[in-house]
Design a protein around this nucleic acid. Structure first.
Length: 1004
RNA sequence: GCCGAAGUGGCGGAAUUGGCAGACGCGCUGGAUUCAAAAUCCAGUGUCCGUAAAGGACGUGAGGGUUCGAGUCCCUCCUUCGGCACCA
């Protein structure tokens, strides 16, 4: 019985493609090539649990694009590889006392097997892993490029793309050295260069958890304690490598315009970069004696010197987007970590300031920025002088000011900034209104929320506005600037301050420089040495490995379990790895941080083009041919970090002349996440569930454990934040605690538009699909789907579920549906009742009937158009329609079936190849020309069109396709129902859309 | 709070961009085949009125508007999901 037998045909064709190298792609284009097409999947991390059904979603989409592309004569590059450095492998290795490479190799083998099992047309000869020496050698080489580059914001130049830009990454040897620095000697010059490199070292605060012996990411710290175990976490400064991505912020922003990405992703990146424009303004710090003379001396000195690149010791520089509110600045705030805090703190404020700074250090960034928190801060005891009105204003420190943004200091304008207002109200600092809102102004919700009309502390102040105003308006109380609009005022005062040497226009970015080092073993080592003095202490100078000395390998025989100190584990590496003596006799110690996982995935798309090159990271001609990536598909979770980091590296390589395109990924598509099957949840009063303790979140209550009167409808439930920070369900009406109850789909029905319990129809329940997760137990394993159905069915179902970009729930009976479709396709060609595998009698070398011909051409047209639009779900439904009609035909001409198999092949390549072979073709259909449709064959003689009366469809009539309005109207009036609706009415007008519809508008 | 995406049958989703709402698939109902089942095939399936006909009313999250005509365009609101969240 030759049934559709995927277990036989799928391995057969996978072996066929492998053995013949069907999808191996040489870099030289074939003679009749219609151009290159580089289609890339986002680099997977080969986790221990193998492929997830989310992976094949994007991979099937790219595979369809590639298979279609090849059949259209494109020279297709479609590679796959592994992003295999990273923490999970290291932690697994520590647990199992093995080398991470062992687990990584096993995981890669699993991933590769699973991907091959799904029949993806990758060119496996280009496979690579970030952990291959041949790969990370060049990752280190690119790092050296970053290390060797400084950013010249003034440089105007024309790139290989023909566009002229201002600002360029240039070799560090071209960095102009100021005479003052040069006078300081070789050491001073080298330190000056090191400060300007795109890769530089800085002391950055990290979350150090002594108990766990590790550094934690911000997300892993809650309430000053580690997320796991609840151990205390301290912020300590640690020597870290940073990459100066901020220098590229403007280009990362503006060059987004040129790529073909979803607008929503571009917006995410724009917001992440967060460009703002405003001004930097210098405030003179008032001495202990109210020295007006010192201030005057300073301002007049500034008039001649202009605005310096670094402020003097007794000057505070602030950044503001609202220089027009300068007259309203009534105090200043520094971040607790601001370097000037020590000097500004007076003796009697010392204890308070130190205490506050220590507290702030203990908090993670996440806690500090918790919006719900009350404002805190401490007065330093010092005063500054407002440059526009010479007023003395107090200088505070507060953690609502971040040291990493702007200059780490602000001028506080409480009347026109909500945060400053809150702080000023809290500490009873003066508030001066300097902007009048427009006449028709309605306060925003936030402004209203801060209203202090009923606060007795402020009630008796004359002319006091009881709430802040953060919008734009007209200047008041601002000296000679009164009456100006915010817009004009900003420009005027920025220019005036610049003329006086007190300020300048400034741009700021939310984007921070990229913290590029990790205190872990399993990552790329830095190709950097630190110079040591005779006592073995670092001198602060460093030198890079020469490119030909790469790769720098990890020490193999070495115990990297955490040692309880914040230094990286590599600090304990064997001496022959850790130390060497330079040619000049200087003792050197290796950099012991390692690179983050992002590093390897920043440039893999380049290496795929030329994976075996041992001379260069990529050959320039090869790069020029394949780049940019034409289609890049992956999950939204990489919308910001990976895509921003990769773009940044690419632009540095572009500036240094190593790549020819300014952007790496021309077109980006984000596949939507696949969720688990929808689940129903009801709620019941916790107190009625006998065994349930209210702390036990994990426990599942079964519906049969719930007493009939213990149910609470979803509509009467709400989530409430508990004191512990967790969230709980409570009954709205009583506030009583509720527990979720998992409900079997059979126990639920829909009544009057709401989902209710079948047994208690007054109780509403919730239906929701959740992210697949181990703890929820709703993970679908691709291996099982392939075993129970087929790879072709899995591929088709993933595409048939809905639009690629959309989030959608998994449903196993949907797989069943496409599997049945594949069975119908099989029987459309194969005689299943014969003993031997053979073609069905109905399949003949007969000419197509007119209907069959029209169907075929319509299917070709629709499927082709849908693939072009990446609308794979509708393409599949067109293939199903074809099959439904064709299987009902007693004669099924080969001339219809063969093009159909070609159309099917990108989606379900195994069955398509098998049937193609069965129809007598000796070679794979992978490079058969894609069918073309003939527009003339689509035409029909007659069309059915709807007839509307006043926009309501009253009848459908059959008319000749080319019938004119008069003919159609006549036919319409002849229809009984239409006639009835027209009877006794006056026809006002008639709308006719040829071939589509007729609408008769009547009155009376 | 701000920004973004989305709300269409019992379910996943279609709808040439303002022109027949519900393609295709799942599920369900009935039938054929079968000793029986699986598999397969055929028919039906938005809701309501009507007689399982003819015919009609309603119907794309809610309310309003534009239009001969609105799932599609405009305004107000609701819900869900995602991102950001003291960035001066």
């Amino acid at each position: 019985m030759p049934r559709y037998d995927p277990q036989r045909i799928e391995p057969k064709w996978q072996a066929y493609w492998d053995e013949r190298g069907t999808f191996t792609t040489p870099n030289a284009p074939p003679e009749d090539s219609k151009g290159k097409l580089y289609v890339l999947d986002m680099f997977p991390y080969p986790s221990g649990s193998g492929l997830h059904v989310g992976h094949p979603e994007g991979y099937t989409a790219t595979d369809i694009i590639c298979r279609y592309g090849r059949m259209r004569g494109k020279h297709v590059l479609h590679p796959m590889g592994w992003d295999a450095f990273g923490l999970p492998a290291e932690q697994h290795a520590i647990r199992t006392k093995t080398h991470p490479r062992t687990a990584v190799q096993e995981n890669i083998a699993t991933f590769r097997r699973q991907l091959k099992m799904l029949g993806f047309s990758y060119d496996w000869s280009r496979e690579l892993s970030t952990t291959d020496e041949n790969y990370f050698r060049w990752t280190q080489w690119i790092f050296l490029q970053l290390f060797d580059t400084w950013y010249d914001p003034e440089c105007e130049w024309t790139g290989p793309d023909g566009k002229t830009r201002t600002g360029r990454g240039r070799p560090i040897s071209e960095l102009p050295i100021p005479d003052k620095v040069r006078a300081g000697g070789d050491r001073a010059v080298r330190l000056y260069q090191d400060r300007h490199r795109l890769a530089y070292i800085s002391e950055a605060p990290v979350n150090w958890c002594p108990k766990l012996g590790t550094v934690l990411a911000n997300e892993e710290v809650i309430d000053g304690k580690s997320e796991r175990g609840g151990h205390p976490v301290v912020r300590i400064p640690l020597r870290q490598w940073m990459l100066r991505i901020r220098k590229y912020a403007d280009r990362l922003l503006s060059e987004l315009d040129a790529v073909d990405w979803p607008e929503s992703i571009k917006l995410l990146q724009r917001n992440w970069i967060g460009r703002s424009t405003g001004a930097e303004v210098d405030f003179f710090v008032a001495g202990p004696e109210s020295a007006d003379s010192a201030f005057e001396a300073w301002t007049s000195a500034r008039e001649t010197s202009g605005f310096p690149s670094e402020p003097e010791e007794n000057v505070l520089r602030v950044y503001t987007t609202r220089p027009d509110t300068l007259y309203g600045a009534t105090y200043m705030v520094l971040a607790p970590e601001h370097p000037l805090v020590d000097r500004l703190t007076t003796a009697d404020q010392r204890t308070a300031v130190d205490d506050y700074r220590e507290q702030a250090a203990r908090k993670s960034d996440l806690d500090r920025t918790d919006l719900a928190r009350e404002k805190t801060g401490v007065f330093t005891g010092s005063f500054a002088i407002n440059p526009v009105n010479s007023e003395r204003i107090p200088i505070w420190i507060a953690d609502y000011v971040l040291v990493s943004y702007g200059t780490g200091a602000i001028m506080a304008v409480p009347a026109h900034d909500l945060r400053d207002w809150e702080f000023a109200v809290q500490f009873e600092l003066p508030i001066t209104t300097v902007v009048a809102p427009p006449d028709d102004y309605q306060p925003t919700k936030e402004e209203q929320a801060l209203d202090v009309s009923h606060d007795p502390r402020f009630s008796d102040q004359p002319g006091f506005s009881p709430r802040p105003f953060a919008g734009t308006g007209t200047a008041v109380n601002s000296g000679g600037y009164d009456g100006l609009s915010t817009q004009e005022f900003k420009q005027r005062i920025t220019a005036d301050l610049a003329a006086q040497g007190l300020g300048r226009e400034a741009v700021n970015y939310r984007l921070r420089d990229w913290l590029f080092s990790r205190q872990h073993y399993w990552g790329e080592p830095f190709p950097i040495w630190h110079e040591l003095d005779e006592a073995g202490n670092p001198t602060g100078l460093m030198r890079a490995d020469a490119p030909e000395e790469l790769p720098v390998r990890l020490p193999e025989e070495f115990d990297f379990t955490p040692h309880g100190r914040p230094e990286p584990p590599l600090d304990d590496a064997p001496d022959d790895w850790l130390y060497k003596t330079g040619d000049d006799g200087v003792r050197l110690k290796r950099e012991t941080n390692s690179m983050p996982q992002w590093a390897g995935s920043c440039w893999y798309y380049l290496r795929f083009c030329d994976p075996d090159n041992s001379e260069r990271f990529i050959d320039p001609d090869v790069e020029n041919y394949w780049m940019p990536v034409d289609v890049y598909i992956g999950g939204v979770e990489h919308a910001v970090l990976h895509l921003l980091y990769a773009r940044f590296w690419h632009k540095v390589l572009f500036d240094r002349g190593h790549v020819s395109t300014p952007e790496p990924f021309q077109r980006l598509v984000n596949q939507g996440m696949i969720l688990g099957a929808p689940e129903f949840t009801g709620y019941a009063l916790a107190e009625t569930i006998g065994h349930a303790s209210s702390d036990d979140e994990e426990q599942v209550v079964r519906a049969d454990e719930v007493a009939p009167d213990a149910w609470v409808s979803v509509e009467d439930s709400a989530t409430k934040a508990l004191d512990s920070g967790e969230e709980a369900r409570v009954q709205k009406s009583t506030g009583k605690r509720l527990l979720p109850v998992s409900i079997d789909p059979d126990g639920v029905e829909k009544r009057e538009g709401r989902l209710v319990l079948k047994d208690h129809p007054s109780i509403g329940v919730e239906s929701r699909a959740f992210k697949m997760s181990k703890s929820r137990g709703n993970i679908v394993n691709p291996d099982a789907v392939v075993a129970d159905y087929s790879a072709d069915a899995l591929r088709m179902y993933e595409m048939f579920m809905g639009p690629l970009e959309q989030v959608k729930p998994w449903n196993m009976s949907g797989v069943e549906g496409v599997f049945r479709f594949l069975g119908r396709v099989w029987r459309m060609v194969v005689d299943e009742r014969a003993d031997e595998l053979g073609i069905a009698d109905a399949v003949q070398n007969a000419p197509l009937t007119a209907d069959q011909e029209r169907l075929l051409h319509q299917t070709i047209k629709d499927v082709t158009g849908d693939i072009e639009k990446l609308s794979f779900n509708t393409a599949i439904s067109r293939l199903m329609e074809f099959t439904n009609v064709m299987t009902a035909c007693d004669v099924r001409p080969r001339a219809a079936l063969e093009p159909f198999l070609l159309l099917l092949s990108p989606f379900a390549p195994h069955i398509a190849e098998e049937l193609w072979e069965l129809l007598g073709h000796a070679n794979s259909l992978a490079y058969e020309p894609w069918p073309a449709h003939d527009e003339a064959k689509l035409a029909t003689d007659e069309v059915e069109i709807p007839v509307q009366v006043n926009g309501k469809v009253r009848a459908r009539i059959l008319v000749p396709a080319k019938a004119d309005q008069a003919a159609v109207e006549q036919a319409a009036r002849a229809d009984e129902t239409v006639a009835k609706n027209l009877a006794g009415k006056q026809i006002v007008k008639t709308i006719f859309v040829p071939g589509r519809m007729l609408n008769i508008v009547v009155r009376g």
